[in-house]
Design a protein around this nucleic acid. Structure first.
Lengths: 244, 244
DNA sequence: AACTTCGGTATTGCAGGTAAATTATTGCAA
DNA sequence: TTGCAATAATTTACCTGCAATACCGAAGTT
């Protein structure tokens, strides 16, 4: 394994490239949620004709990252706080199950690796002590490994391929809250401990609790919004997203 | 509610129509899993050019109902027994949660309606007693209402819009098993009872158990397949699906 | 006889162009 | 000045045509 010739390369059509590019732009924030995209502008900006671009858009449409209104146009899917809450609820159920399965299916080596990952995080955290925030990619890495370790490939794809993306768009870090980073790290440790004990029920519970904290944060925002008569998060409709 | 003017009609592009048509063809079995579809043939058969057809295909691709291999072609997604099992596992978690939420969020009227539905099923079942099988659409209706009653729209769409479709393709009726129909009806009653009691935990448990039975059926098949040295379910590759 | 190579045929991938719909703008009237 | 109407401009929707790639069968080689 590891040889350069072992990986089977797949021909990539323009559509694939364009779709990936747009997806990346959405996640990176280059294309803001709710912003409209002009076919002509995007096509010339990417150097392709409108055919493949439209096909790429259709695919992302199927994945609910883009929304098209016939004869009007395409916009980046915008999630309301309510949507966000719903998605987090789904995530809780799915990733809870994944974690329970991981307790049964992950290899000892994988779990050990997970533990090392956390020690690593701890160090990095102590460096920027007061920054008090858990770097996004680290958090993602931890969750990713567990989900992959569940042994249920479809479940893993649903989480890492679909739900995570939607959440990332919102760079929704409840971890920006003051003491949250330390808490999160501790919760990660609890999860790892349950995995080491090979206790699926405890693992599921630990993961669910961890995720519930994140969700509570959103629920607080919802509550605040509805009481304050806050403007219901108007997604900027005017802006047209480019990729330059 | 229910007025003819309440439904907001959306302009439907050719792509929408074509996509729906293909989806229907897949579900109805007109297009078998694993079968290849020729763009030219489908296009002429549907009376559209290849452009919109390709876009429709791309969308279904995003929804994992179709799979495209670059420069080769498109085929209807084929699920192995292992895939099926994975999906059923996901369904268990998701629909379990949905049922728990439904116990909190469904209106009394909706629950009462559910009960009437079951009485109706019972009658119909007793008519074709020995046929011993729960008509597919009835079963779907029951589950559909509960899922919709969860109050979590995204969850409902994931289940009814995505997972159910994948499962329907396989018309995988564990209900064809001899005594299964009666059992299933009884389980439905248990679920309804938990909802009436407004007991979310019991509701979730009842639903999970109901679904676990279906899954066990698949697991048995997997076991049988691997021991018998059965050919691993070769999806017919040769056939080209038409819509005529 | 089996395997490889080579050419023809069919299918997919991509680009541009025309028609239809929506949005923006301008002019007119109240 | 405001509201409406007609028109112009922009954008999407769809179709056709051409290029690139893969598939299939025949001929040739080992």
């Amino acid at each position: 394994m590891g040889g350069l010739l072992d990986n089977k390369v797949q021909a990539q059509s323009l559509v694939d490239v364009v779709a990936e590019r747009i997806e990346a732009a959405i996640i990176s924030g280059q294309l803001e949620p709710g912003s409209r995209l002009s076919e002509q502008a995007l096509a010339t900006s990417l150097g392709v004709s409108r055919g493949p671009l439209r096909e790429a858009i259709r695919r992302l449409e199927g994945r609910k990252l883009l929304e098209r209104t016939p004869n009007i146009g395409v916009r980046v899917a915008a999630l309301s706080l309510r949507d966000l809450n719903e998605i987090l609820q789904v995530r809780e159920a799915l990733e809870g199950m994944a974690c329970g399965l991981a307790a049964l299916n992950m290899s000892d080596a994988e779990i050990a690796e997970l533990r090392r990952l956390l020690d690593n995080h701890e160090k990095q955290r102590s460096v920027q002590e007061n920054k008090g925030y858990y770097q996004e990619s680290k958090d993602f890495d931890f969750h990713f490994r567990i989900v992959a370790g569940s042994g249920n490939e479809r479940l893993a794809r649903m989480l890492t391929g679909d739900l995570y993306y939607l959440l990332r768009v919102y760079r929704y870090k409840s971890s920006t809250k003051p003491g949250r980073a330390m808490e999160a790290l501790q919760e990660h440790r609890d999860i790892a401990a349950a995995l080491e004990r090979r206790d699926p029920q405890a693992a599921e519970q630990a993961m669910r609790e961890h995720l519930r904290h994140a969700r509570r944060y959103v629920e607080e925002q919802i509550a605040a919004e509805t009481t304050n008569g806050h403007p219901p998060a108007t997604p900027r409709k005017g802006r047209v997203g480019r990729l330059d």
